[in-house]
Simulated scan of single mutants.
Amino acid sequence: MPFKNGRGATNNQASTRFNLAQREADGDWLDEFEEIDGPASKLRTTVTELKSKTIITRNSSPDIGFSQSINAFAGCEHGCIYCFARPTHARMDLSPGLDFESRLFVKPEAARLLRAELARPRYVVRTIAMGTNTDPYQPIEGRYRITRACIEVLAACRHPLMITTKSDRVTRDLDLLAPMAAQELVAVALSVTSLDPALSRKLEPRAPHPRKRLAAIRALSEAGVPVNACISPIIPAINDMEIEALVEATVEAGARSVSNIPVRLPFEVAPLFREWLAEHFPDRADKVMHQIQSIRGGRDNDPDFGTRMRGQGPYADLIRLRFDKARARHGIHNDGRISLRKDLFVPPSDQGRLF
Rank of each mutant, 00 (worst) to 15 (best):
R122L: 09
R308F: 02
P39M: 12
A74T: 15
D286G: 15
A216G: 02
D317M: 08
P62E: 07
I81W: 07
M180R: 04
L174S: 06
G6Q: 00
Q13H: 03
E24W: 11
Y137Q: 04
D196W: 04
S102L: 06
F267N: 13
A285P: 02
G97W: 11
L98I: 08
Q312A: 14
P2C: 02
V192M: 02
T250S: 13
P262V: 04
L214T: 08
H290R: 12
T164K: 10
D28G: 12
I319Y: 11
D99M: 04
R310Q: 04
T193L: 06
M309C: 06
L185Q: 09
E117R: 03
A178W: 07
I163M: 03
V47S: 01
I163N: 00
I234E: 05
H78F: 13
I151S: 07
D93T: 09
P197T: 08
N239R: 06
F267S: 10
R201V: 13
D302T: 05
P348W: 04
A119N: 11
A245C: 08
S167W: 02
W276Y: 12
L277K: 09
A270K: 04
D175Y: 05
A189I: 01
R320F: 12
E35P: 03
K325R: 15
A119Q: 04
D175S: 08
L265H: 00
